[in-house]
Amino acid sequence: MNSIGTAQIGDGYVTLVVFLIAALLFALVPLGLARLWAWRFAPPKPGPVKNGLYECGLESHGDAWRPFKSSYYLYAIVFLVFDVEIVFLLPFAVAFGGLPLGAVLAMMLFLLLVVEGLVWAWSKGVLRWA
């Protein structure tokens, strides 16, 4: 009997199980070593100084709960979305002369969706800074 073609159905899963175990060990061993290192060389020493608030080299004064406009975050997210979408236009612009009609139509659809998103953001007032 020759051994070519006599593979069992479960043989492919052995490799999968080995990779699964290796992946788990790859994640858990450094975490365990870090925990052991922290336990041995950095025992917890709670106190008023260690538990105090500290930021940017200055002690905190006053209340940390200051009102902050969430519209700034929304403005930044819209900027990032459109910035990333516009990056997809660079390959299209570079290869514009040699593209088939289907690629040009797909890019025109993409541009239509980008412009539609921009019009939507504008109509909702997301682009107003103040």
Rank of each mutant, 00 (worst) to 15 (best):
R35P: 01
L28I: 09
I77L: 15
F19E: 00
G98S: 11
A106W: 01
E59N: 05
R128Y: 03
L118N: 05
A130M: 03
P46V: 01
L118M: 12
S3K: 01
L113D: 00
G102E: 13
V119N: 02
P48D: 03
A130K: 06
V29Y: 10
N51G: 02
A64V: 09
L111N: 07
Y54K: 07
V115E: 01
P46D: 03
G57S: 10
E85G: 05
Q8V: 00
L109C: 11
R35E: 13
F88V: 02
Q8K: 03
L90F: 10
P43E: 00
V78W: 10
N51V: 02
P46C: 03
G97M: 14
L33N: 09
F26S: 10
P67F: 00
L109V: 13
G98D: 09
Y75K: 09
K124P: 05
E85Q: 04
Y73F: 13
M1Q: 08
D83Q: 13
L25A: 12
P91A: 05
L105P: 08
F79A: 06
T15R: 01
P30S: 11
V49R: 14
P67H: 00
W39A: 14
A130R: 06
R35Y: 10
E116A: 12
L112F: 05
V14A: 08
A34G: 06
G32F: 09
A38N: 14
F96T: 08
G10V: 13
A130H: 09
V104D: 08
G117H: 07
L80H: 08
V14E: 03
V14T: 05
